[in-house]
Amino acid sequence: MDSEEMKYLVVNRKEIVPSVQSDWASKKLIWVPHDVLSFCAAGIIGEEGDYLTVLLEESGKKVKVARDECQKMNPPKYNKVEDMSELVCLNDASVLFNIKDRYFSDLIYLM
């Protein structure tokens, strides 16, 4: 395949910025259930027994969610990965995010 066709299949991993990785680690990001978006990225700001206090990335609201309802988020270096079996955290939220991320980046074709 030529480079024109490959742009719809493969992500250029050289474009990943290292500072994004450190931001992800410092915010302790996870996926929490959301009524409209199915799952929403959130940063953990507190823990009380079986509940987490999180700050939703999309709205900036603080909410309490049950620890069991949360799903782990993959590090940014796995964003738009071609083969989802490579994901460190293979869960519903991560798969859905990866598909949406690839689609909105015109990388809709998975190998």
Results as ranks from 00 to 15, higher is better:
34 H>P: 10
53 T>W: 05
25 A>W: 08
30 I>D: 01
85 S>Q: 08
101 D>Q: 13
11 V>G: 02
54 V>Y: 08
40 C>V: 11
29 L>H: 06
29 L>G: 04
60 G>V: 05
96 L>F: 13
47 E>K: 07
21 Q>K: 07
46 G>D: 04
34 H>A: 08
33 P>V: 00
15 E>D: 13
26 S>G: 13
66 A>H: 14
101 D>C: 11
72 K>W: 05
84 M>F: 15
4 E>Y: 08
105 S>A: 15
5 E>G: 05
48 E>R: 07
2 D>S: 14
81 V>D: 10
68 D>L: 13
64 K>F: 09
53 T>C: 11
105 S>K: 06
16 I>K: 01
102 R>H: 03
89 C>M: 03
48 E>M: 03
96 L>W: 06
88 V>K: 13
101 D>A: 08
64 K>W: 14
107 L>H: 06
79 N>A: 08
4 E>W: 05
8 Y>A: 05
67 R>I: 02
78 Y>P: 08
42 A>T: 02
75 P>I: 04
76 P>H: 00
103 Y>G: 00
43 G>N: 10
82 E>I: 01
30 I>T: 01
65 V>N: 00
93 A>S: 00
61 K>E: 15
65 V>H: 04
53 T>I: 03
10 V>M: 03
70 C>Y: 05
95 V>A: 06
43 G>K: 10
41 A>P: 11
74 N>I: 00
40 C>I: 11
106 D>G: 06
88 V>Q: 11
1 M>T: 07
110 L>C: 04
80 K>W: 03
99 I>S: 02
99 I>A: 02
50 D>A: 13
68 D>W: 09
3 S>N: 09
27 K>N: 14
65 V>E: 02
20 V>M: 10
109 Y>I: 15
35 D>T: 05
31 W>P: 07
55 L>S: 12
77 K>F: 07
61 K>G: 03
95 V>F: 11
52 L>H: 07
75 P>T: 11
45 I>V: 15
65 V>T: 03
89 C>K: 05
58 E>D: 14
102 R>V: 02
55 L>A: 11
67 R>N: 12
6 M>L: 15
98 N>Y: 06
80 K>L: 01
35 D>Q: 09
85 S>Y: 06
79 N>R: 03
31 W>D: 05
98 N>F: 12
12 N>V: 07
39 F>S: 05
5 E>M: 11
29 L>F: 14
78 Y>T: 00
27 K>I: 07
103 Y>P: 06
11 V>Q: 02
17 V>H: 06
97 F>P: 10
99 I>M: 08
111 M>F: 09
67 R>S: 12
96 L>N: 14
2 D>L: 09
83 D>I: 13
76 P>E: 00
68 D>K: 02
3 S>D: 09
60 G>Q: 11
51 Y>E: 10
3 S>R: 02
23 D>L: 09
80 K>S: 12
46 G>W: 01
